[in-house]
Design a protein around this nucleic acid. Structure first.
Lengths: 155, 155
DNA sequence: CATATGTGGTTGCAAATGCAACTACAATAT
DNA sequence: ATATTGTAGTTGCATTTGCAACCACATATG
């Protein structure tokens, strides 16, 4: 990173090294986790996210756009992602009564089972590749930093 | 996250909340940065990365696979990414003398100029959306954490 | 109500990604 | 030299993503 003369008034630490490391760590770690899932013959992380978000949701269901928001994905990409999960029998689409346009996505029994199975691979990967390398204090601090970043988020 | 009984021996902090926040922060922040570039009529982050990595490289050039490693991308994806930059006149491909199979990617003058221009959008975005929200100590700590994560990386 | 305007969600098409097969050259062995 | 195996990089094809246009229903306006 950097590459412009580090002129005048520096922002906090002016270097963009932290950001660069953040990006690299993300790619490497997500890549490694995806690989483990695939090697175990399991679907990608995105499927896990959908299933888990739905399971946690009130009444185990969520409108397409609410799901999109939580996934941090565009609506149309969620349409397709859900299409695939539906086709695989992991999620069902149910029309809402309140709004004739809306749909709920709901995990099926098979979907819940698959999520659990994915978790047996995903969780150890998180622990081994990520959690393990942070002290308790670092976990806490990192969480508070991330939350702060997300407050002022979007734009 | 979570979703399995938090059985026996917990790893550092056993929760996967930090990881979840890390993923979300990444999506949100990268999304916001990409948006700023696009709104400014500039190419995506990936192009910046290629150009900057090449500029920094010894002799301002890098073999395709070395570039792939630094970008944390697969070789064939780098082939195509570079194709696009070449087509846009930002990078040139030069056959190596040492090895008849190899190619160097080299930024053109236009490529260096574009990178600089992108930086005028990208840098303020990093500062505003990321740097600003971390204290110096947090920057330092975060860097050391990320570096540790990257040591034991791949698998 | 009839019409305009907004919103939830999907779809067609173009661009980007992932993977396996492949080409061209290198290195090693016979 | 000749065949064998390895490595750098690209390409064809299938899947996924991004975006604009679009359909269906809902809400507001006159």
């Amino acid at each position: 990173m950097s590459g412009m003369k580090t002129s005048a008034a520096a922002a906090s630490p002016a270097s963009t090294e932290t950001w660069a490391l953040f990006l690299t760590a993300h790619s490497v770690l997500v890549g490694a986790m995806e690989k483990r899932l695939k090697d175990a013959g399991l679907p990608p992380l995105a499927w896990y996210d959908v299933l888990w978000i739905l399971e946690r949701a009130p009444d185990q269901r969520l409108r397409m756009s609410a799901l999109a928001d939580q996934l941090v994905l565009t609506r149309f990409n969620v349409t397709r992602l859900v299409d695939r999960l539906v086709e695989a029998g992991l999620v069902a689409r149910r029309q809402t009564k309140e709004d004739g346009r809306g749909f709920y996505a709901v995990p099926t029994e098979k979907g819940r089972a698959l999520r659990k199975q994915m978790w047996t691979v995903y969780r150890p990967a998180i622990v081994e590749l990520f959690n393990q390398h942070l002290s308790s204090a670092q976990h806490a601090d990192m969480q508070s930093v991330m939350r702060r970043l997300l407050e002022r988020d979007v734009d």
